[in-house]
């Protein structure tokens, strides 16, 4: 405090107050949510994609409800994974091109912390909405309503891990023209364990088993991802920004 007041006393223009971290993160989260709401395609397109695939599968496989409900866990998770991939491809592109990312990199806080608001906003606008409406999509595939809580819980955690992992790839490839395919090649292998754990949870839930083991694995993934991914994302962004 003494330091701050002396700085202010020495001259007007250097009287920059200390950065209020929580306020900064809140303002940035609002900025990104505002941007997502302003271009609703970013929110609606993944949902439409989800809906289309769920409509197409019964047409391709035949309307046998038993067969459909047998395949439902895999279908739901694969579609969620692909929808997430679509989101990751757009994640940092605009901010990279309009200079927001380099300004963020110059902000007086670690880049690993500064990227969290965008990840949070993206997850709220994609993963959370998708998870909450997923029981509806599940019904269309004959997925039992009784297992809906497991479906929602597994997708809530799964979409968050996939976003965190995907953001690492997005950070690395943002400077590359048409880096989408490279991004998919980079992160799809990392999605495999998440996919296996997620579908396993749903299979257990639909066959009166215990989905808790698979859900706990996803939970562990979320915890690990929240701690490690921002650091990797920041490192990737530094490579892309050539800092």
């Amino acid at each position: 405090m003494a330091n701050e007041s002396s700085r202010q006393a020495s001259n007007v223009s250097s009287g920059l107050p200390e950065l209020n971290l929580s306020q900064f993160l809140w303002v940035q989260t609002r900025r990104h949510l505002g941007l997502l709401i302003a271009s609703p395609g970013e929110i609606v397109n993944p949902l439409l994609f989800f809906l289309l695939v769920v409509i197409l599968f019964p047409l391709g496989l035949g309307p046998d409800p038993e067969q459909l409900s047998l395949l439902a866990p895999g279908i739901l998770w694969v579609v969620a994974l692909l929808a997430n991939l679509m989101i990751c491809m757009r994640l940092f592109v605009d901010d990279f091109e309009d200079g927001s990312l380099e300004q963020l990199a110059m902000a007086p806080l670690p880049l690993a912390v500064a990227v969290v608001p965008q990840l949070l906003a993206s997850w709220l606008a994609s993963g959370v909405i998708l998870s909450l409406v997923s029981p509806l999509f599940g019904l269309m595939l004959g997925f039992p309503l009784a297992a809906a809580p497991t479906l929602v819980a597994s997708l809530l955690m799964g979409t968050l891990i996939m976003l965190l992992v995907g953001a690492i790839g997005a950070a690395l490839t943002v400077g590359i023209q048409r880096g989408g395919i490279l991004l998919a090649l980079l992160i799809l292998p990392l999605y495999v364990p998440i996919l296996i754990a997620g579908t396993r949870a749903l299979e257990e839930a639909t066959s009166q088993g215990d989905p808790m083991v698979a859900l706990a694995l996803l939970g562990a993934g979320v915890t690990g991802g929240l701690v490690l991914a921002p650091v990797a994302i920041a490192a990737g962004l530094r490579v892309s920004l050539e800092l």
């Binding site: 900025r31 300004q103 963020l104 902000a107």
Partner: peptide, 13 residues
């Protein structure tokens, strides 16, 4: 206004 309020450089808030 929002552009300046939420400028990512985080200066001065």
């Amino acid at each position: 206004r929002d552009n300046l309020l939420s400028h990512p450089s985080g200066m001065g808030m």
